[in-house]
Design a binder for these strands. Structure first.
Lengths: 193, 193
DNA sequence: GTCTATACACAGATAGAC
DNA sequence: GTCTATCTGTGTATAGAC
């Protein structure tokens, strides 16, 4: 694997576990196997630039994953419960590590790192757009689809936090159940009968 | 105001804005007006102890606030939309600062600060318990109430992140709309007719 | 209980040999 | 493109005068 890719991947993992501020260049060097000088060679902007790349990469990966997971079932309602159940299983099996560095980092730096906030903004916008199209194809109106996707992403990110804090799958399973019910109700009114 | 209270209050504000790792003792001293030595005098455990206290205090404050806001309307569904609308207005008027230091800090330190994670766990448990009782009184079954409260708290925390990242009220308003609809559906099946 | 000075480790970043 | 040594600032924490 190329050096810059190894650095980005290591950064993603560190952001997941401990966030942006607590992650040091030295630690990144150890985790990636690349010496400090190499990091600055590949990323002129230093730590911030590496994090920027890591957010973009994670954002794109989750965009693919989300669409894949949601489309896995014929029934959209089952798809929602499936996504949350999968997340619950994964998060426990990783020892309650965060699944999404984007949410963690944005919560931490949105007020103090304009560049990273803007990168996260673009990532989230891409999720909302793709999700909205997905649920429009399922039969929801544009506004309903968009609202539901915001609730879905917010519910996922929030439930990640609760699940990690409580070391329990319950927050994810509960949020999935409620959002699945919500989608069922929206679909029922959208295509009555 | 007492010195230890000033320190705790300043820490809460700093945690909100920039999280735990990025907040230094020196910065806390400046923000609180108390010199470094006084911080260590009042909080033997240093930075971690101050953050611990700040989380407990914020948790208790939000417990009161949440119950107050939810009970403000006779109609529980209107209460949900009211909470999210209020949050949207407040978050914008503060320049997109985080409203809840608990979520931010937990996302950042859950894997690396066991003491703070445990403190946050207790705070969240207190929210879930109080919220569950509230919605049981509204007519939901115990399991439905508990699931809905998890979805509610997760939706709030997640929407805070999205709203700050996008500098938009839309995530909060959208999540509120969806969760209000979800509660309406749950109430309709709980007390038919 | 308040405040200053300081110890010691480590941060991010850079220069320059290889 | 890789790696080492190092610069400068800041981090947490403490000792001890007041």
């Amino acid at each position: 694997m190329r050096t810059d890719q190894r650095i980005t991947t290591a950064m993603t993992e560190l952001l997941r576990r401990q966030g942006y501020a607590a992650t040091g260049i030295q630690q990144l060097a150890e985790a990636s196997g690349a010496p400090v000088g190499s990091i600055y060679h590949h990323f002129k902007g230093g730590k911030r630039a590496v994090a920027h790349r890591a957010l973009e990469e994670s954002g794109a990966a989750y965009l693919e994953l989300l669409v894949l997971l949601l489309g896995r079932y014929d029934d959209p309602v089952a798809g929602i419960e499936g996504v949350f159940a999968d997340a619950a299983e994964t998060i426990e099996s990783t020892g309650w590590a965060n699944l999404c560095p984007v949410g963690t980092v944005l919560g931490e730096v949105a007020d103090v790192e304009p560049e990273l906030r803007a990168a996260g903004d673009r990532v989230i916008a891409s999720w909302i757009e793709a999700g909205t199209e997905h649920y429009e194809r399922c039969g929801l109106s544009g506004p309903d689809a968009r609202s539901f996707v915001y609730a879905l992403v917010a519910g996922l990110e929030g439930a990640f936090i609760l699940a990690r804090a409580q070391r329990s799958r319950e927050p994810l399973l509960a949020a999935g159940r409620v959002l699945a019910g919500s989608l069922a109700a929206l679909l029922a009114t959208a295509r009555p009968g």
